[in-house]
Design a protein around this nucleic acid. Sequence first.
DNA 1: ACAAAAAATGCTGCATACAGAATACAAAAG
DNA 2: CTTTTGTATTCTGTATGCAGCATTTTTTGT
Lengths: 228, 228
Amino acid sequence: MDEISSLQRRPDGTTGPIRRTALHDTLVNHLRDMIIEGDLEPGTRLHEGQLGEQLGVSRTPLREAIKYLASEGLVELVPSRGGVVKRFSPKDVHDMLTVLRTLEELAGRLACEAATDAQIAHVRTLHDEMIDRYKAADRLQYYKLNQDIHTAIVRLAQNSSLIDIHAMLQTRLKRIRFIGHEGPEKWAAAVAEHEEMISALEARDKTRLSEVLGRHLFNAWDRVRDSL
Amino acid sequence: MDEISSLQRRPDGTTGPIRRTALHDTLVNHLRDMIIEGDLEPGTRLHEGQLGEQLGVSRTPLREAIKYLASEGLVELVPSRGGVVKRFSPKDVHDMLTVLRTLEELAGRLACEAATDAQIAHVRTLHDEMIDRYKAADRLQYYKLNQDIHTAIVRLAQNSSLIDIHAMLQTRLKRIRFIGHEGPEKWAAAVAEHEEMISALEARDKTRLSEVLGRHLFNAWDRVRDSL
DNA sequence: ACAAAAAATGCTGCATACAGAATACAAAAG
DNA sequence: CTTTTGTATTCTGTATGCAGCATTTTTTGT
């Protein structure tokens, strides 16, 4: 029972509340979540018939969603065999982190120049909230806020292309990080790095912010390598 | 007369040589080329019926191709209105070049470490050929080889994610560069920078290569800004 | 003649139908 | 018992049909 219940069902003629989002778009998000959360493990074939029936949609919008995710890099398109959930090798993950690091270093530099005080204050809010979740050992919310902070800093850079690509890489890596459960010491170290980040951002010290972000993502490899 | 003639046509029952590529995949490449080369200008709506008839395919694979290109960033998906060729503002282009610059700087550093002598020699070959095309004032081939060189250097970095994302940005920018026709002085300057790049690569001087690549792409903005 | 409403047209979004390829399975031959 | 070949089933790839939304044109009222 996994229907996309919220929208779309209208077998009778009832003109229910208007649906503005297209089904293929809904499916993209739904499938993406399923992949990230591990419901669809790497190597899994995306059976159009079965999956479509399970979700209560026809094959057409499902296929469109799969094509979209393929271009996004989460799904691989094998000729005459359809979509397969892409499997990332440890090297792939390392490669992605390397690129992510470079991009966030750039974002840090740009953010110090472009951000308004209010925007920085907002990041501080997210940070404080994350610290709360850390102290409460609430890993799930911690991870979520962690990612939000990185995304927020990237947004401060005001570079649309950077925002796009960063989001894409975050998505691809989310699956890994979602799983990765580092030990308390490493976790503490990561939090300490975040503290540094925020203070550097508030000081608008772009060299330092860039450096910390780089170090943070360099260390990120250590934190996830075990779970691979 | 714009049929996708090469493959797929078989109105009679003749079992011609096997076709391994899927139609939607062929369409992705075809449409991408049409967009890059300006056959489909920014803002153009991608009429499924009309366009499909023009290319001799049905709407289904065409729709799938459009979704793919949307995820790639060349097409925008407007609800209830289908695909529209994305229009890039000058700032968008500037943003993309900024990211591209950062990525190629990274690629330069990694390439100096990872590349084999043979690979470097191959880039030199491409470079020499490009110089020939420059001297012959053959802009089209010059551009093509230019891009090939950048792509080749990125490949030397041996980072799959970097290769992916770089290719994506190149594609998005290709449309702009394809149009951009800078004057002889700027062109000469670009060629000079390429000379520097190759020599830095051959010396495996990563600091210098990274610096030149950065400067090259920084200047790239000057070279295209007029044509926007 | 102009504005507003209503009808008509065209296009997208989704579902279904059909054809061809791949795979799994079974039977036959070595 | 293993291997190979033929067959059946399943799934992808593509085409087509239908319903709803958007936009444009026509019509009607002032």
